[in-house]
């Protein structure tokens, strides 16, 4: 990075550190923070969408749909996320390739499973074998987002389901009396009001999501914990210009600070959001705001 970094052995402490902290590996480490933040930003809305659909399905009057929604919620919530991550990404990947294989190579007569091998035609590969590395990484990222979203979507569905049930019946009955049809009641009355009931649960979910990010490496993403382990491990002079002992303690400490900061910032933002959402609602929070204003 800096011009004086050519021979690290000769440097004083401060300069050595400045060189050490700007090596290529450290840049990857810093990038991984952005990666995690970006993943969180993408996953949250996707998971919410999954949750919304799941909750709608669970509330459905059609028994099979409602059963499907409830099974999704119960099964995914019942399994530790780590167990899920350990096999689900490969399953998801194979499912996509299987579908593409069926569509793109209809005249392929070899079995797809041969012993332990999973073989699809070249055109069905995702991404194609000839694609550049960044395509593979993006695809891996999308798979990770999907897996996270499916897991956390089940939790979100549970929370949103609870939120929908908590909207006072009187509100819905009034809407019926005004002659609104079920669709209108759902979108105009139920959905706008349920957020305030669902928000505490969703905030909690967000906090859990933040803390689930160390599991990203299981999904093939080089996340901050992976790099902290890699960088903190003992480095011998033969393979690195910057030999050091076991420094994992320091790197993990940096992660601890990062996670605590994320939590604190989220708490503050969510608190504000709650105040906003409570505005004009038929809850204790909303009532308190009305009185304070009056």
């Amino acid at each position: 990075m800096f011009s004086y970094c050519t021979d690290p052995d000769t440097l004083g402490q401060i300069r050595w550190l400045s060189c050490f902290l700007t090596t290529g590996v450290h840049m990857s480490f810093y990038m991984s923070f952005l990666k995690v933040l970006f993943l969180l930003a993408v996953t949250a809305p996707v998971a919410l969408a999954f949750g919304f659909v799941g909750a709608m399905a669970a509330r459905s009057r059609l028994l099979p749909v409602s059963l499907m929604g409830k099974t999704y919620i119960a099964v995914v919530r019942g399994v530790p996320d780590i167990a899920f991550f350990l096999f689900f990404v490969i399953a998801l990947d194979q499912a996509f390739e299987y579908i593409r294989h069926k569509v793109l190579c209809p005249d392929w007569d070899q079995p797809i499973r041969q012993g332990s091998d999973f073989i699809v035609c070249q055109a069905a590969k995702l991404p194609l074998g000839t694609d550049p590395q960044w395509m593979h990484e993006t695809y891996g990222f999308i798979l990770a987002v999907l897996t996270f979203a499916i897991v956390f979507g089940a939790f979100a569905a549970n929370v949103l389901f609870g939120g929908m049930q908590a909207v006072p019946r009187a509100q819905l009955e009034t809407a019926e009396a005004y002659g609104l049809n079920p669709g209108q009641i759902f979108w105009r009355i139920l959905v706008p009001q349920m957020w305030v009931y669902a928000l505490p649960g969703l905030s909690n979910l967000w906090m859990v999501l933040i803390k689930a990010t160390p599991l990203l490496f299981l999904l093939g993403i080089e996340d901050i914990v992976y790099w902290a382990r890699e960088l903190g491990g003992t480095k011998t002079a033969r393979f690195s210009d910057y030999p050091h002992g076991d420094w994992r303690m320091w790197y993990f400490f940096a992660l601890l600070v990062f996670y605590l900061l994320m939590t604190r910032v989220s708490e503050v933002v969510l608190e504000r959001l709650m105040t906003r959402l409570s505005h004009g609602q038929a809850t204790t929070g909303g009532e308190a705001q009305r009185r304070a204003a009056a």
């Binding site: 090596t23 290529g24 590996v25 074998g129 393979f239 690195s240």
Partner: peptide, 23 residues
């Protein structure tokens, strides 16, 4: 021009490891 993807662990010097440049 088939691309062959080589999978490695990157945590087992001297066989394979990540160098200072991150490669």
């Amino acid at each position: 021009s088939q691309t062959v993807r080589m999978g490695t662990e990157g945590a087992y010097p001297p066989y394979n490891f990540i160098n200072d440049a991150g490669e």
